[in-house]
């Protein structure tokens, strides 16, 4: 008997088939875009809605490789750097806070009783509704944007940490105690190392919403940043800038996710195998 390769419940597509299948939707998307873009541009060469790839490349060349006339900066790289910096600071702080608060809340029932109801409440606040508050409180500098990313991602990650510690096999904690661990040693030498891969997973899931909050904050008040640029050029209907920027943001998000996945595979084999 030969297993089917593509169709049916028992199909086992080969390596190249899987790669081809993965690429297929992307290729289709590009083709569909090119077709409609061509149709519109043939009708009106000044159409801005669906720019051709050449137009996008020209726009990006201007932004990425030629200094801006007004400030002398390379805008694209400036924007990228500013946005990445905000995301990195916001997510790092949120991850660190989730680790410390989540682990202690999950491990110590007293702290859980203290923190969990409040955190559940905080997690329900739509972070974007807080954006005006943050802008008023912290001004239009970096702090407000970082704070939004933090507030948007920290409660969910913390809750995930706390709840997964509470679902942790009790046996391991008792075992560690019989091996002479103090309460703090159980938390920081037994639970914390085992929670790291879980934290990385929670962080991966938070990357998407971190970008959402960043773009929103930059759209409203900023002088630079990927989100700022998109909303700035929107006034001139510059789809030739917006589309590459969106692709770039997507790529950055994907690379961050991929990097964390590699980290998991490299450092935490026991987690993936266990």
């Amino acid at each position: 008997m030969k297993k089917p390769q593509i169709f049916g419940l028992f199909a086992e597509p080969g390596r190249w088939q899987r790669i081809a299948f993965a690429l297929l939707p992307f290729v289709l998307m590009v083709l569909v875009y090119l077709y409609f873009s061509d149709v519109r541009l043939a009708e009106n060469p000044n159409d801005k809605l669906l720019p051709s790839f050449t137009q996008m490349a020209e726009a990006m060349e201007r932004l990425a490789f030629k200094p801006s006339k007004r400030t002398g900066d390379y805008l694209f790289w400036n924007d990228t750097l500013a946005s990445l910096q905000r995301i990195a600071i916001g997510l790092s702080l949120a991850t660190l806070a989730a680790l410390i608060f989540g682990i202690n809340m999950g491990a110590f029932n007293g702290l859980f009783a203290l923190g969990n109801p409040f955190l559940t409440f905080i997690a329900m606040i739509p972070p974007l509704a807080l954006l005006p508050v943050l802008l008023i409180a912290f001004g239009i500098g970096e702090v407000g944007k970082v704070a939004l990313i933090f507030i948007g991602t920290f409660p969910i990650m913390t809750r995930d940490m706390a709840l997964s510690i509470r679902a942790f096999p009790r046996e391991q904690i008792v075992k560690a105690k019989t091996l002479g661990a103090s309460d703090l040693a159980v938390v920081y030498k037994i639970l914390l190392p085992q929670m790291m891969p879980r934290l990385i997973t929670a962080l991966r899931l938070s990357i998407g919403s971190a970008w959402l909050f960043l773009i929103a904050a930059e759209a409203i008040a900023a002088q630079e940043g990927l989100g700022y640029r998109i909303f700035l050029v929107r006034r001139y209907l510059s789809m030739d800038v917006i589309i590459p920027y969106v692709m770039w943001i997507t790529l950055l998000g994907f690379l961050m996710d991929y990097g964390l996945r590699l980290l998991l595979r490299w450092r935490y084999r026991w987690y993936l195998k266990g």
Binding site: E171, K175, P193, W270, Y271
Partner: peptide
């Protein structure tokens, strides 16, 4: 000292 059926070892 305790030995369980499972979870006695620390997987990391």
């Amino acid at each position: 000292g305790i030995v369980y059926q499972r979870y006695s070892l620390f997987p990391n």
